[in-house]
């Protein structure tokens, strides 16, 4: 496979290696689309137009085809996000047990509304569907870390793992 200049400039050798390894798991390269976008996102934080174009050429699909997939899923960010994405559960049990209140406390602390990047560039807060931790509601994910049982008494700094 020839990798054009644009691909090379958007993806580093590790990304390309990881994406190719992922493609090898399936009879059809396109099946690696979501994982490939996640690989890009892991290093760059989000999927820019240029990165999407580069991944599309690696997967041998058109940019529109990849965009169709990228815009379908929740965890692919097509807009810039902060260094860490906080996903707070907005589904029923967490909502019942204080998710709205948790959201407001986080927004105040981060000084950003959901979807925005906090002014210090460190966080973006997003809602997410049920995290499967309803027995320890309210729950949220800070990056890849699941944090549960964060009632009104849990300090935001503790949630974010900022106090030390």
């Amino acid at each position: 496979m020839s990798i054009d200049a644009q691909t090379a400039s958007m993806l580093n050798a590790d990304d390309i290696r990881d994406i190719k390894a992922e493609m090898a798991h399936y009879p059809d390269k396109a099946a690696a689309a979501v994982e490939a976008l996640k690989i890009v996102q892991r290093r760059q934080g989000w999927v820019s137009d240029a990165a999407l174009t580069a991944v599309a050429s690696l997967l041998d699909v058109s940019t529109a085809q990849l965009e169709a997939v990228a815009t379908f899923y929740n965890l692919i960010y097509r807009q810039p996000v902060g260094e860490t994405v906080i996903h707070y559960c907005s589904s029923v049990t967490c909502w019942m047990l204080g998710a709205d209140d948790l959201r407001e406390r986080l927004c105040r602390h981060l000084n950003a509304r959901p979807g925005q990047i906090s002014p210090d560039g460190r966080y973006t807060l997003l809602p997410i569907a049920c995290l499967g931790a309803c027995d320890q509601a309210p729950a949220l994910m800070v990056g890849e870390r699941l944090v549960t049982g964060v009632g009104a008494e849990t300090a935001v700094t503790e949630i974010l793992g900022e106090q030390s």
Partner: peptide, 8 residues
């Protein structure tokens, strides 16, 4: 290949 359904 350049017209697709996007979004959700």
């Amino acid at each position: 290949s350049d017209l697709q359904v996007l979004g959700m």
